[in-house]
Design a protein around this nucleic acid. Structure first.
Lengths: 183, 183
DNA sequence: TACTATCATGTAATTAATTACATGTTTTAA
DNA sequence: TTAAAACATGTAATTAATTACATGATAGTA
């Protein structure tokens, strides 16, 4: 396998909460899920077909207006089972984060490199924006303690992402401060 | 493009430091670089050919022993130029970290889910090990201040990775502690 | 009524990346 | 001296993922 095809499990996981169309799933990747996983509709529709062939999901056609057909997919018992399996199975592989900025940094040899300040500054701006964005999401998605209870995993990972960005920003600030002053 | 083919730049970056064979490069991905990027030899050898066709690198054949041929690649002036371009160009896309554990967590609805403790525990173990490993590397790779000076970018990102793991471990511990106690 | 944004579903082409297949040499240690 | 580990270089098959191509319906608004 080139990857472990996690997309199938994400789809199963989302359908396990409620029936959705391919379009709905695509939207989910632009919002909620998009925070930590991406997929385009060109990947989603074929995957839905495969999952249905395997018997893990099924669909019924509904018609909106005069003739617009929607395929509303739902998870099957077998689908639920392999979703449970996937979640229950250990996750021993820590995937290296393929961060392009980090990669570029690796090839900077000297702390006097004139590109360093702007590079760090750009990332600081980006990660600060992301930090604020996550802060906002945490606030809007989990308004009351009950919503945390109902989506505890989501709460945990949003909190995790926020903390991660906070650290990233701190590290960038520290690295900028440690740079030799031009004079 | 499916990705932005960062591999070519990594190869150029490594060859910019010293001439290397395909085998050397493969090893580099198992050690140094492996900390934050992966590539197999089956990807490296074809990429070397492409880079040579493009005129960014060139090679000479050396013979070890009786007949074992090695291709020692070095970067060309043009190669150096596009490497510089890549590093100097902004890096505005923050790649979402595709962490399988995080993904699984997302589908855990309740903090009473019986799978939660073992899941968090497993990750705690893994990330603690990784943390210690990184701590060790930082110690062995950068023994004196001079080595930090000579490979400043590498120093920065190792430090960054260490801090990231430290935070991950903290977050896992906190999440474990916040779990409702079984009774 | 006409236009635009969004809804809705697909396929094709291309690139990236992993796993597997394939072969031969040199060095080191038992 | 012989066997194993490491050195060394490739190709093929498969899967994953992105970008581009392609089509049409519905809802809202100007």
């Amino acid at each position: 396998m080139a990857q472990k095809n996690k997309l199938q499990f994400i789809i199963l996981g989302l359908l396990n909460q409620q029936p959705l169309t391919g379009y709905d799933l695509t939207k989910a990747f632009e919002n909620e899920i998009g925070e930590f996983w991406q997929a385009q509709h060109s990947q989603i529709y074929p995957q839905l077909k495969r999952l249905e062939t395997q018997g893990y999901i099924a669909h019924e056609v509904t018609v909106s207006g005069a003739k617009l057909e929607k395929k509303l997919y739902h998870i099957t018992t077998e689908g639920s089972a392999i979703l449970r399996d996937w979640i229950s199975t250990g996750t021993p592989d820590l995937t290296a984060t393929k961060d392009e900025f980090i990669l570029k940094l690796y090839f900077i040899r000297s702390n006097h490199d004139p590109r360093l300040p702007e590079m760090l500054q750009e990332q600081l701006q980006l990660h600060t924006t992301k930090y604020h964005h996550l802060q906002q999401r945490l606030k809007t998605v989990f308004t009351d303690p009950a919503s945390k209870q109902a989506h505890y995993g989501h709460y945990l990972i949003l909190q995790h992402a926020l903390g991660r960005e906070e650290y990233y920003v701190d590290w960038l600030k520290q690295s900028l401060a440690a740079l030799p002053t031009a004079r």
